[in-house]
Design a protein around this nucleic acid. Structure first.
Length: 503
RNA sequence: GGCCCUAUCGUCUAGCGGUUAGGACACCAGGUUUUCAUCCUGGCAACCGGGGUUCGACUCCCCGUAGGGUCACCA
């Protein structure tokens, strides 16, 4: 039975890297008809951010990674506290197993203060020796208030004792090293003499990550630990703990990091913002998911577009890459645009509901849908909708129109200086009797082209400026059609007036 | 610094001893009645370096080099 977990710490927001990790856990679980579990690792009471919890939940919900079990299930269902470490801590489970280790002589309460520890560390560094804390230092360090209340001092694992323990058991390797396997990178072997007596219970009584992780993964029957590769270096500690407790270790899977375009760790500047920022900018969750799935994984073919179900079906652990990937926002934009283009207008209309300008509010649904179908192919993300469609809801100002005629951007309009007034009035004349269907507009404008003896590259920009107050817009016939008879003729006339006033 | 990981176009990547080193994004050029976009066509562009192993290495091994991770009472 495959059981994976995503175990974020609410010390900040849910970022891109976290979503990718959650995604891979989710995909692997779903593919194997297993369970995807969401666990909250909130043992760091000092850096706890309450809003972080809601944001993580909202972020996962938005990208559609619904946990099967966890401190949050789905909307409407109650939260479960069984997956919140601070709540589990109340049951005394972590302390229980720490006490067990103390009884066996494999762990000890460490009476060295954080300051004292630092002193030892500095001393070692000066000597040029790696700093590896051992129980023997305890004797050297006579801290006065040795008999303090329970819980005031941290508990450390006694590595030397552990070595002895496994040595007595004639374990083939564990008295010297811990061996473990990574499903994507292969065998690892960590030298125990290089592992310090790490803390398993902090002085505030809470377990450390290294300890809580092992206890929880064991009791939650996690089969595969899929996490970022920053955890590779602490996995030896986890593997050792599993051996000590005599528990079967889950499989370890470490994912390559995601870097920014500058090759360094993702930062705010390079795209690692709150996932919900992507929602606000109008990225489609399925596009983000598709994009993220391809960061560190591919199915060996040239396919790049994978629908949700396809990802679930095709995802393979052994196809995960070992080298870091760079988050390229342009590629995301392309993929998002691709997904937007593949939406039906009806669906796009639903998705785009929050992205219209204020002026668009009064427009009818059908009008907005027609506008949408005109701009759909040029949207990279929904937040672009407002600026791309503003002229469909608001006539350009006389000054803007005048300025575009005075300082044209279009190449042909710079080279040639048509009689603007004549062109505009001829257009009005030509369109006056049109039924304003796309075909008829096209037909009439083509006739006009002949009549004026000019080229599309000259006439159309002239019309475009009058209609949109811009040198950029969707194709001209469609724009006129959607704008409709009244508005089109009105704007053409207004442009004429603007020109006369400017002269 | 110790331990560990990684290394194919600018980017995501295919390759798993013999290929004209493939695809996609980006970029450039041309085409689709005008712009931008879409779409189509074409182009530019890569095996970090040095040793081995081998008839033959992008592929395997070693050493460099570069980048990254980690050395917390953070996860």
């Amino acid at each position: 039975m495959v059981r994976t977990r995503f175990a974020p710490s609410p010390t900040g927001l849910l970022h891109i890297g976290g979503v990718r990790t959650a995604l891979f856990n989710y995909l692997f679980a779903k593919q194997n008809q297993g369970s995807f579990i969401l666990r909250l690792e909130d043992t760091d009471r000092e850096r706890f951010v309450a809003e972080g919890v809601d944001q993580i939940v909202a972020g996962l919900d938005w990208v559609g990674l619904r946990p099967d079990e966890g401190f949050w299930i789905t909307e409407g269902k109650p939260h479960s506290i069984d997956y919140i470490q601070s709540e589990r801590h109340k049951s005394g489970i972590y302390q229980k197993y720490a006490d067990q280790l103390i009884e066996k002589g494999l762990a000890y309460r460490s009476y060295i203060s954080a300051d004292g520890y630092e002193k030892y560390k500095d001393r070692s560094i000066k000597k040029g020796v790696p700093f590896i804390y051992r129980k023997t230092y305890e004797a050297e360090y006579h801290h006065k208030p040795r008999q303090t209340l329970y819980g005031d001092w941290p508990i450390r694992l006694d590595i030397e004792a552990v070595k002895g323990y496994f040595s007595e058991k004639k374990h083939p390797f564990l008295h010297e090293r811990v061996d473990w396997d990574d499903e994507v990178r292969g065998a690892f072997s960590d030298d125990l003499s290089l592992m310090e007596d790490f803390i398993i219970i902090k002085s505030d009584g809470f377990p450390t990550y290294n300890f809580a992780n092992v206890i929880d993964d064991h009791f939650m029957k996690i089969s595969h630990i899929i996490r970022g590769d920053e955890f590779i270096s602490s996995t030896g500690k986890h593997a050792l703990l599993y051996e000590i407790f005599g528990w079967q270790s889950p499989k370890f899977v470490h994912l390559p990091v995601i870097n920014g375009l500058d090759g360094k760790k993702l930062s705010k500047r390079t795209g690692d913002t709150d996932v919900l920022d992507y929602k606000e900018k109008g990225y489609l969750p399925e596009a983000l998911v598709n994009f993220l799935a391809l960061l560190g994984w591919n199915d060996g073919t040239e396919q790049e577009i994978f629908k949700h179900d396809e990802l679930v079906q095709k995802f393979k652990l052994d196809q995960i890459n070992t080298s870091p990937a760079v988050f390229d926002p342009k590629r995301l934009d392309w993929m998002n645009g691709y997904y937007i283009r593949s939406l039906s207008v009806e669906e796009l209309y639903k998705r785009a509901a929050d992205f219209w300008t204020a002026k668009a509010e009064t427009a009818t649904d059908s009008y907005k849908k027609r506008v949408l179908s005109l701009v759909q192919e040029r949207l990279k993300f929904l937040a672009e909708l407002a600026t791309l469609t503003i002229f469909f809801f608001e006539a350009p100002s006389a000054a803007t129109v005048r300025n575009f005629y005075k300082n044209p951007v279009d190449k042909q309009l710079i080279k040639n200086t048509p009689d603007l007034r004549h062109f505009l009035s001829a257009t009005v004349e030509q369109l006056k009797d049109s039924d304003f269907s796309h075909a008829d507009i096209q037909n009439r404008l083509n006739k006009l082209l002949k009549k004026l003896g000019t080229k599309p590259a000259i006439l159309f920009p002239v019309i475009r400026i009058a209609l949109t107050g811009s040198s950029v817009s969707p194709e001209i016939f469609g724009t006129i059609e959607v704008l409709g008879r009244n508005e089109s003729l009105k704007r053409l006339d207004a442009a004429l007036t603007a020109l006369n006033q400017g002269a």
